[in-house]
Amino acid sequence: MSEPAVIDCTEITVRYGPVTVLDKVSFVVPERRTLCIVGPNGGGKSTLLKVLLGLVRPQSGTVRVLGREPRQARMRVGYMPQYVQIDPLFPIDVEGIVRMGRLKGRGLGFYTREDRMATRQALEEVGLWEQRREAYINLSGGMKQRVLIARALVNNPELLLLDEPTAMVDAHIEARLLEKLKELHNRMTILLVSHDATFVSGLVDEVLCVNRTAEIHPVERVRDKSVTRLYGEPVQHVVHGHTHHHGEGEEQPDA
């Protein structure tokens, strides 16, 4: 018996004006899998995330997230943008940001006791309850990441989407993030965009290679040729002090 699909994309095509960003992309993600989306800049990774979030509507093809239209599934999806996309000067504290994840579009815009409880739970999960009154502006890059993860988790989502979670953070923060994702791995389906496939090598079940088209590879099959073909040139990863050259017949990638 096949597992129920959390994401089911069939031949989706997205164009921005004359430019085709995604061309007849099809893939299925079953429950409780962790996928890493890799691909070159401008290859369509972020657009694919936006399609799954219902922020971009494909010109053709069908998308089902948790069995529904992406816009209808939003409340069951957690999303973490890159922290550099958030205004660092905004006057808000840690709790305020996480609680924002509980906001609803309907009714009066007040928070309930349940919202406050869920916020506390999410902050405790990422170890930031004690820092709940800290101003966002004063946080380190790693703490900002954790705040945004807490906001993505505050609704106890079934699907977690992370956009470049390792961008602009050091190796120590990366390692802590990996530990957190390993914990979440058992509870929900995770899709993360990353340039750094080795970072998630111990976590992901499959790699979704996106460059206008998309192809899912089991982790062990992502080898020199497929990565080189995807990026169009030899790719070098520098991770945790180890150097991996792909495409030049040197070391095999971890991913």
Binding site: L55, R74, Y79, G105, R151
Partner: peptide, 22 residues
């Protein structure tokens, strides 16, 4: 009445949209 939604709009418009805010 609308403080939380206006704050969300100003802080992170994408997140506000994802929470169903028009």
């Amino acid at each position: 009445v609308q403080y939380n939604r206006l704050q969300a709009l100003c802080f992170d418009e994408e997140q506000a949209r994802l929470r169903g805010i028009r």
